[in-house]
Amino acid sequence: MISSLVVAFVVGGLICVVGQFLMDGLKLTPAHTMSTLVVSGSILDGFGLYEPLIAFAGAGATVPITSFGNSLTHGALEEAEKHGLIGVLTGMFEVTSSGISAAILFGIIAAFIFQKRNTTY
């Protein structure tokens, strides 16, 4: 168990370093950086590399935003395997939903509870 915590720390940290490099080194805006990471997660899953990474690093691979692209692609691929090409369309959100639905739900709850501050968040 302790080893999986260490691996999660290192792998998750490294993915964030890649993000920081895209921001600082290649001067991308945060939105571009996030989109790039999501796309790379999706492509990695296309090559079947992201699932082994999850098996290896656990939360180190599922918590960064790259896993978002992975799970979208993974849902699409799984459906495509069952139903052919049409599954690509229908399967996409099959696996991903929790992150997005949580964000929507908690976003609305936050809008209820919290007041706007002078600082931007």
């Binding site: 080893s3 999986s4 691996v7 699932e51 082994p52 990474l53 098996a55 290896f56």
Partner: peptide, 9 residues
């Protein structure tokens, strides 16, 4: 073992 988990499947 952790280092072999890449090839878990």
């Amino acid at each position: 073992p952790t280092m072999k988990r890449f090839s878990k499947v």
